[in-house]
Write a protein that binds this DNA or RNA. Structure first.
Lengths: 134, 134
DNA sequence: TGCAAGGCTGCGCAGCTGCGCAGGTGTTCA
DNA sequence: TGAACACCTGCGCAGCTGCGCAGCCTTGCA
């Protein structure tokens, strides 16, 4: 945390307000690829449809595609496509039982991110931040 | 958690595989508006630029727009726009100091979501390999 | 063996998002 | 007072995303 001349040479000549903090910030960001990976991870939860599917699977256990469609009000293809995305990402897995495929959450790390979402169900924190200048 | 006839009448006549689990799923999903709110929350973290900015602000403390631009490699307008989005969402706040505006993270709940992202990073300093930025 | 059910895929569209460029506003300093 | 600086905004574009419709494949049952 001491010596950080991590500033890319390209930007080294830019004038900075708090140079040392810029270095700390760069250290905090770390590998851009890692940041992008996490952004993709979060983007999986950024869609109401997928989030609803994950919440349903997380708390109601293995569910079939059609049932998920009924529960979420989505169309079958939409559910299927969303699940395919989540499956590709390694978040869910499907178990075939005859002609029924039941999906379940397998990525515990991402499942843990669902916890605060569920916990905050009863309380609605103030989204209305006082706009100084609307 | 047993008998829940929460199934919307519209979808009530659809054939289901595990009817009770459908009800549990609907209960797990809860209010669609809440799901959408959380999806928007996650979507704030779903962009590499915003995520990098939040990581920088979260760990390096208050930073000016220009410094954030240098740290992230983004252009000033992009940083400004991202911060405006985050500020509108109540995630960050800016403190004006003369002509400099230093931003900081104010939404602790969302800041907590950054923790696993940081913890799993473990970008350990390379002991001897001098690679500022290949 | 025929038929229905469950699930998946191709295609196309509407909508959104992020960003770069140019220009504007307010502040500080020579 | 003018110039430099920090930040913000309007505009437009390229790219992506999610979803609906229609159709196909596989499976199970009568």
């Amino acid at each position: 945390m001491a010596r950080m001349h991590l500033v890319p040479p390209e930007r080294a000549e830019h004038r900075t307000i708090d140079g040392h903090r810029v270095c700390e910030a760069i250290a905090a960001i770390g590998d851009p690829a890692r940041v992008r990976t996490w952004a993709e991870r979060f983007s999986l939860l950024a869609d109401p449809g997928r989030l609803a599917l994950l919440l349903a699977l997380h708390r109601a256990g293995p569910l079939a595609v059609g049932d998920l469609a009924v529960a979420t009000g989505m169309r079958d293809p939409a559910v299927s496509q969303a699940l395919r995305l989540l499956r590709t990402a390694g978040v869910v897995a499907g178990d075939r039982d005859g002609r029924v495929v039941r999906y379940r959450v397998v990525d515990q790390e991402l499942g843990a991110l669902l916890a605060p979402c569920v916990a905050a169900g009863h309380v609605e924190p103030e989204p209305a931040v006082g706009r100084p200048r609307a």
